[in-house]
Simulated assay, not measured.
Amino acid sequence: MGYIISLGVGFGIGLLYWLLKVQSPAPPLIALAGLLGMVLGEHAIPVVKAQFFAQTTTVQVAGPVKGAEAQKTVAPGATKQGG
């Protein structure tokens, strides 16, 4: 699949060169700008995915506690209500 994408992008860049009337091989400044764009694009995709599709952390809640562990703890300074 990667080869097909690469071929399609290369074809698109070839069309862009033709529209801009840039000779291939491109002048060094245009070629370096294109390479910089490719590198930045390569690194931007994971960043964008992380921002838009960030997974939220989930908290697992334990089930009911049985036996001695089921006693409620009273906060310090709290008074016991009742008779």
Rank of each mutant, 00 (worst) to 15 (best):
L36S: 14
V47R: 07
P46W: 04
G2I: 14
A62M: 02
I5F: 15
I5S: 10
E69A: 15
A31G: 07
V61W: 01
K49I: 09
A44G: 00
T56K: 06
G10W: 03
Y17V: 06
F52P: 00
L16I: 12
P28E: 08
M1K: 10
S24T: 14
I13N: 00
Q23C: 02
F11T: 15
G82R: 07
Q23P: 09
I45L: 10
L40A: 11
G34R: 01
Q71N: 11
P76M: 02
T57E: 12
Q55E: 10
V48K: 03
L35W: 11
G2P: 05
V74I: 15
A78H: 07
L15T: 05
Q55D: 12
H43N: 09
Y17C: 15
T79M: 05
V47W: 06
L20H: 12
F11D: 11
L32T: 07
Q81A: 14
Q55T: 11
I13T: 03
L20Q: 15
F11I: 15
T56P: 02
G14V: 04
G83C: 05
P25T: 04
A31K: 08
K80T: 13
A33E: 08
G34N: 13
T57M: 01
M38C: 09
T58R: 06
T58L: 01
G77E: 03
H43K: 12
G34T: 13
I5P: 02
G10E: 03
F52K: 09
A44F: 12
K21W: 06
T58F: 03
Q51A: 14
I13M: 10
P46G: 05
E42W: 11
G77T: 05
L36C: 14
G12L: 15
T79C: 03
G77L: 04
V48L: 15
